[in-house]
């Protein structure tokens, strides 16, 4: 099963509600994460810096990127341990490409 990990900056809320405007990206990501995980054919794991800092230390690629690029490297998207994207969230199309045809999500 494909495993997508998204390492995010510390946030109060999954949908970015506490920002100065709603981040549609985060609302969208919350929804697509849910539907991918419910398909049981692929898994998306979101790691929030405020809640799971250990994940950022344990993953050596992420730890290294944080040291060299600073906070601007977040969010980092990894697919089966390979960094696919940094600094921006993946689009729905990209997520669909990562998980492959098996778990394609209706949009």
């Amino acid at each position: 099963m494909k495993k997508i990990e998204i390492f995010e900056p510390a946030m109060c809320c999954p949908a970015g509600l506490c920002g100065p405007s709603v981040d549609q990206n985060l609302v969208r990501l919350t929804a697509i994460t849910r539907s991918v995980n419910h398909s049981h054919k692929a898994m998306i794991v979101r790691r929030n810096l405020a809640q799971n800092p250990n994940a950022f230390v344990r993953n050596q690629q992420v730890a290294k990127l944080l040291k060299t690029d600073g906070m601007s490297c977040l969010p980092i998207t990894m697919v089966d341990g390979v960094v696919k994207k940094k600094g921006v969230y993946p689009t729905d199309a990209e997520i669909n490409a990562y998980v492959g045809a098996a778990a394609k999500v209706n949009q």
């Binding site: 900056p9 510390a10 946030m11 109060c12 506490c18 810096l49 405020a50 809640q51 800092p53 250990n54 950022f56 230390v57 730890a63 944080l66 040291k67 600073g70 906070m71």
Partner: peptide, 26 residues
Amino acid sequence: SVVGPYRGVLPDAAIQNMSEQLSGSC
């Protein structure tokens, strides 16, 4: 208890980001 163990482990900017998010009234 959340942030402390990561001082000096994660970059300062990351520590600051975590602290602020855990400083609200929530």
